[in-house]
């Protein structure tokens, strides 16, 4: 997928929230878009799906496998070629069982069988399928949201803040789970404010600052004193991580 000069602005004031944002992602890659909370990065996900609120206006071009996405073509790709792992746990329908919602995007013949496979892969129990979303823990709900995307055959996965509210252990599991997309040779764009998490699984990290992408760097650039980083904000960001002063990241990952 290739995003070119994507600008999102308020319909009335014309004040841009995201300004001329360009980004591209290939199969088998994980790219993280890192930015502060409230910097409007979630809007990027909505813009890719053409689901922005009416008060916002998007300009610029998005290509998927060389084809320009229009209102019409996006509609036919949603849920089939592109899927969204949403930020809000309320993205699960409160009145529908988890199982039924997990089956939403399975197109293959034997749905039950396939669903069972996914469940095993996620380490979830089968009883969970008969439960309603309010009966899940936060961690379970997050995994269910990922599972729905995993069950689809989409080649491009957009994950909008998939990690908040998880404890250390659950966070590990979640990140592990997200790398599955790479193993399956799909593309994952993770939108997050969790720089640390982004560093652990991404191939590239794009840094969003005041509505603009100030730097796209391979994850290897984020090491040592950050001499390979170009933009001042990125460097500042890198140094601001607490462990950079006294320990290396490798220790934490052990």
């Amino acid at each position: 997928m290739n995003i070119q000069q994507l600008t999102i602005q308020h319909q009335k004031t014309n004040r841009p929230i995201l300004d001329q944002l360009s980004l591209s992602i290939q199969k088998g890659e994980i790219i993280s878009l890192v930015g502060a909370s409230g910097s409007g990065k979630s809007l990027l996900a909505q813009a890719i799906f053409n689901l922005l609120p009416k008060s916002l206006q998007q300009t610029g071009e998005i290509y998927y496998q060389e084809n320009l996405l229009t209102e019409k073509t996006v509609k036919s790709l949603r849920g089939k070629e592109i899927v969204l792992i949403p930020q809000s746990l309320e993205a699960l329908d409160p009145l529908m069982t988890v199982g039924k919602q997990m089956k939403a995007l399975i197109k293959k013949g034997d749905k039950e069988h396939y669903l069972q496979k996914i469940i095993n892969q996620l380490g979830l129990r089968t009883e969970l399928l008969k439960k309603y979303p309010f009966e899940l823990s936060g961690g379970q709900a997050r995994r269910v949201l990922v599972a729905i995307a995993l069950a689809s055959e989409a080649n491009l996965v957009i994950a909008d803040e998939p990690t908040p509210g998880l404890d250390e252990h659950a966070l590990r599991d979640m990140l592990q789970l997200l790398t599955t997309f790479r193993t399956e040779n799909r593309a994952l764009l993770m939108i997050t404010h969790d720089f640390q998490a982004a560093r652990e699984i991404s191939d590239y990290i794009a840094v969003l600052y005041q509505g603009e992408i100030v730097e796209v760097a391979p994850v290897t650039a984020f090491s040592g004193k950050g001499v390979h980083l170009k933009h001042a904000y990125t460097k500042q960001l890198w140094r601001s991580l607490p462990e950079n002063d006294f320990t290396t990241v490798n220790n934490r990952l052990r």
Partner: peptide
């Protein structure tokens, strides 16, 4: 939010209405 998600999952119109 779950309606927005359903739309992102490709459900629209009557399908979206009856499902959610």
């Amino acid at each position: 939010p779950f309606i927005l998600q359903a739309k992102a999952n490709g459900f629209t119109g009557m399908k979206l209405y009856f499902r959610h």
